[in-house]
Computed example of a mutant assay.
Amino acid sequence: MNIKKHIPNIITLLNLACGCIAIIFISDFKFDLALYFVCLGIFFDFFDGFFARLFKVSSPLGLQLDSLADMVTSGVVPGFAMVYMISGEYTHVPIQGYLPYLGFIITLGACYRLANFNIDTRQTDSFIGLPTPANALFILSLPLVMADNQNTQFVEILFNKWTLIGISIVSAYIMNAEIPLFSLKVKDFTFKKNALQILFLATSVLFLLLFRYLGIPMIIIFYVLLSVVNNMINKK
């Protein structure tokens, strides 16, 4: 029995397990623990591919498992979190009716993005549209931004139901938009070829140190904007 060929799939299933646990924490209003488990799931998501390439055991099964696990951790979880945020339960001002279900627009957008990613040959070395893990981090950070922020007016604007629905729609769009985004993969250790990645990582650390949880959505927005600027420079 070749144990090596099963290691990447086991790591992928750990990603899925993290997503399932995150759902439980969201239903119990423990958004901080949900975010931590999503981060752990994303960690596993990175290393399943790493070990598949290392052991040369990439397979169609692994590809399908990876997408299914991502669908839960980076698709269902952020959509579920958004439903709770729109519902107002977290802010103790519950909204009645079916309006909160619009949060699942995020899940639908993630599903389409993951299915398209599997058949899009252009996304081998970079991304087109925001990757679902990055989007999940953006969404899961929002309730923690609210809890961590002392500016009442800012919180009221951000957690207005229509603002959250707007974020859901933009989130689904940006995951599937025809916007090339640079990859964080390091192919060699020369500064010149990795200057963009180094700039992004250094800025990300700075954002986290200065703004704590607010730094997470700022990092995602910066990633998209930096990619757009980089695309414009490359075209010239």
Rank of each mutant, 00 (worst) to 15 (best):
A202W: 06
V77F: 07
N230C: 00
T152C: 03
L54N: 08
Q150V: 07
S87R: 12
A136N: 06
F154H: 09
N118P: 03
S58M: 05
S204R: 06
N9P: 08
D32F: 09
F138K: 02
S74E: 08
T132W: 06
N9T: 06
F127S: 07
H92P: 01
L14M: 15
V57D: 00
E156G: 04
L208F: 12
Q150Y: 09
Q96P: 02
P8R: 02
K193C: 06
L65K: 02
S171Y: 02
I167V: 14
A202H: 04
D48V: 03
D125N: 13
Q123F: 07
F80W: 14
V83I: 13
L61P: 00
I221Y: 07
F211W: 14
F200G: 00
Q96T: 14
L226E: 09
I3S: 09
L214W: 12
L144E: 01
I167G: 08
F43V: 07
L210E: 08
D66T: 03
N149Y: 05
Y173I: 15
L13G: 02
Q64S: 05
F154E: 12
F80E: 03
E178S: 11
E178D: 14
T91L: 15
Q123L: 04
D66C: 06
P131H: 07
L54R: 13
M82F: 09
F37C: 11
C39E: 10
I26Q: 03
Q150L: 11
N176D: 12
F211K: 13
V83W: 07
S74A: 15
L201S: 15
K192I: 12
L144Q: 02
N135D: 13
K56Y: 02
C18V: 05
Q153L: 15
